[in-house]
């Protein structure tokens, strides 16, 4: 009886370990400093996590489909620069700049998807190449200059980054709505099921008549869409951007997705878990700041947490703490 209890508790820990860790962390910090779950503080954390979070939603699709996307960081810089530039272009203005930027970013995603889905090239190298190529593209586009909106009071463009609706900051709203929507797509629709199948066993999926290439292609389209959305928030929040605004984000995004429990081998993970992963990173940073520590301490904490999380995960799967590597 007691043994069964221990087992079931162990099972919950293994399956929802990251959620449990999150709750423990939140409760602990709240006891230490009640300001931690103050509504303003919570919104503040989510708002500052929104850009990373929106990108992580798309990357979750890619990773569950069994691939990687390292190009999201430079794609973010690209979309932010492009939307700002077009905003300043009298022929476009904000109303046209946004759809135009989305179209261009989706083209980049389509290129990723074509190379990896249809031509079956290795996703790590392709998106690594795209990381570099898109960075070059952005620099060429901007001529190496930062982009700024000259007349900030004359535009409604800041609504995506700075606005709020119903008392909720717009970036938080976008993140929440997109997470809910993509969460349902992944969990409830035939397409979502196919993503899991393709990532879990691509050969078996093909043998079951699932168009593997198309599914992979679409995961990259979704990823690009999320990046474009994040780029919009970024550009709108700062009303200006550097060419390197997204640099290094690709690996932080991946860290959030892995922290949420998605396997790099594909076939497992959920949007909900990714959101938890993103929030953990956000709240750790916030908690450490409240504790008076500098922002970079979170990097070290994240390092330890990621490795512990993944280690715990595979240790429960193999039933042994230490690896069998001789």
């Amino acid at each position: 009886m007691a043994e069964a209890m221990v087992k079931s508790v162990g099972g919950v820990l293994a399956r929802q370990g990251i959620l449990v860790a999150f709750l423990v962390f939140m409760i602990g910090f709240t006891f230490w400093n009640p300001r931690f779950i103050d509504i303003d503080n919570v919104f503040g954390v989510i708002r500052s996590s929104a850009i990373l979070g929106v990108m992580a939603l798309g990357v979750t699709f890619v990773v569950i489909g069994g691939n990687l996307d390292l190009s999201v960081g430079s794609m973010l810089s690209f979309s932010a620069i492009v939307v700002l530039d077009l905003h300043e272009n009298p022929a476009f203005g904000p109303a046209l700049a946004i759809p135009a930027m989305f179209a261009m970013t989706l083209c980049l995603g389509a290129l990723n998807g074509f190379l990896i889905g249809y031509l079956r090239l290795n996703s790590l190298i392709v998106t690594l190449g795209m990381l570099s190529a898109i960075h070059g593209l952005t620099l060429t586009y901007s001529g190496g200059q930062n982009m700024d909106i000259a007349n900030q009071s004359a535009t409604w463009f800041d609504v995506f980054g700075r606005g709020s609706a119903l008392g909720i900051p717009v970036p938080v709203l976008i993140f929440a709505l997109l997470a809910a929507f993509l969460g349902i797509v992944l969990a409830k629709t035939p397409f979502g099921r196919k993503v899991y199948a393709v990532g879990g066993n691509g050969t078996a999926a093909t043998f079951s008549g699932i168009p593997r290439a198309r599914v992979v292609f679409l995961t990259y389209i979704i990823s690009a869409f999320c990046v474009a959305t994040a780029g919009l928030i970024q550009a709108s929040r700062t009303m200006g951007a550097q060419n390197t605004v997204g640099q290094g984000l690709e690996l932080e995004v991946l860290a959030a997705v892995i922290l949420g429990g998605a396997s790099l081998l594909g076939g497992s993970g959920t949007i909900f878990k990714t959101v938890i992963g993103v929030l953990i990173l956000g709240f750790i940073q916030n908690g450490l700041l409240l504790a008076g520590l500098e922002f970079y301490v979170q990097f070290v904490v994240t390092w330890v947490i990621i490795i512990l999380a993944v280690w715990l995960d595979i240790a429960t799967k193999r039933g042994k703490l230490w690896s069998p590597i001789a």
């Binding site: 790099l264 990097f299 330890v304 990621i306 490795i307 595979i314 193999r318 590597i325």
Partner: peptide, 17 residues
Amino acid sequence: WKTGVDAFIVTLGAMLG
């Protein structure tokens, strides 16, 4: 070696850490 976690993840974490 000891945890058996994939080197990609281990060094991704270490990159941040």
